[in-house]
Design a protein around this nucleic acid. Structure first.
Length: 279
DNA sequence: TTCCGGAGTT
DNA sequence: AACTCCGGAA
């Protein structure tokens, strides 16, 4: 990092809090998952929001909950139906994890989403940030976390001239400013402030040590995997050659990718050699 | 073409 | 610590 933060004074911490809250009062967003405390609904929204912008999650969220209204319904659903409801959101492993999570919560927690972020983070597809977000929004718990909007807000305000900033340096300030009385509203306020900064400035999160750029999509494994998934959800079952031809790739590469997808719990190879979406 | 983004694996 | 995973918008 080029410029390490001088220990922020209580006064500058208070000024930051005031600015974030003022922005929230004026420009806070009304979002569907902000109208519920239902832990399952909050959990679904947070998993969808992990790598996906609000504008893309918003329509899919209502659709998904209509199809799987509670965690028992999700646990009992065919994986193909869950993947179909997920289509368009990307990073489909999240859908597989979410379905497995529902099965675990129903089987081992009586259908109740755990209230302890440490327990939550042991569930499939839930890491530290998502676990903390869930208990913040569903249970009004005090659980400070760092994700991209939080990073943007704190890098902009406390690390204005710094580069390559590790979360280790950001976290103490995040914790010092976190609202003890209304952590849920504070979380919303931080999200909206961070989003606002990214709309109006070069994304401050690019100055995080943890910022990375993606590899190109065209011709990638990701593109082929997405094509396989859409084909199998639509057709039910296909041969390797059928899948390879549909995706415009050679059969050897298709075979390798199908093996990956099988290990990740997407697909099964049936006795007749056809590939299908798993259970 | 460039942009965005948390979890899991290794 | 480095790498993979998606799709749509700008």
């Amino acid at each position: 990092m080029t410029d390490s933060p001088s220990d922020p004074s209580p006064k500058s911490l208070a000024a930051f809090r005031a600015e974030v809250l003022a922005h929230y009062r004026e420009h806070g967003r009304a979002l569907p998952w902000r109208e519920t405390h239902d832990a399952y609904e909050v959990l679904v929204s947070e998993v969808m929001l992990q790598q996906t912008q609000v504008s893309r999650v918003e329509p899919k969220y209502a659709e998904f909950l209509a199809a799987f209204p509670d965690i028992e319904a999700l646990a009992a659903a065919p994986l193909a139906a869950v993947l179909e409801a997920w289509s368009g959101l990307g990073y489909n492993r999240r859908a597989v994890s979410l379905k497995r999570l529902a099965e675990v919560v129903v089987a081992e927690h009586g259908g109740a989403v755990p209230r302890d972020p440490v327990v939550l983070a042991t569930l499939p597809g839930i890491g530290k940030a998502t676990a903390s977000a869930i208990v913040t929004y569903a249970f009004e718990a005090l659980a400070p976390f760092i994700e991209t909007n939080v990073r943007a807000a704190f890098l902009h305000h406390f690390f204005a001239d710094a580069d390559d900033v590790p979360d280790r340096d950001v976290l103490p300030i995040v914790e010092a400013t976190w609202d003890r009385e209304c952590p849920r509203e504070w979380g919303y306020a931080l999200m909206d402030y961070g989003t606002h900064l990214k709309r109006t400035l070069p994304n401050p999160s690019r100055r995080s040590r943890h910022h990375t750029r993606q590899s190109r999509f065209e011709g990638s494994d990701r593109q082929a995997r997405g094509a396989f998934l859409r084909a199998l959800v639509r057709e039910g079952a296909l041969t390797v050659d059928g899948l390879a031809e549909g995706a415009g790739i050679d059969p050897a590469r298709a075979e390798r990718l199908l093996g990956d997808l099988e290990r990740e719990g997407f697909f099964v190879r049936e006795s007749d050699g056809l590939w299908a979406v798993g259970a």
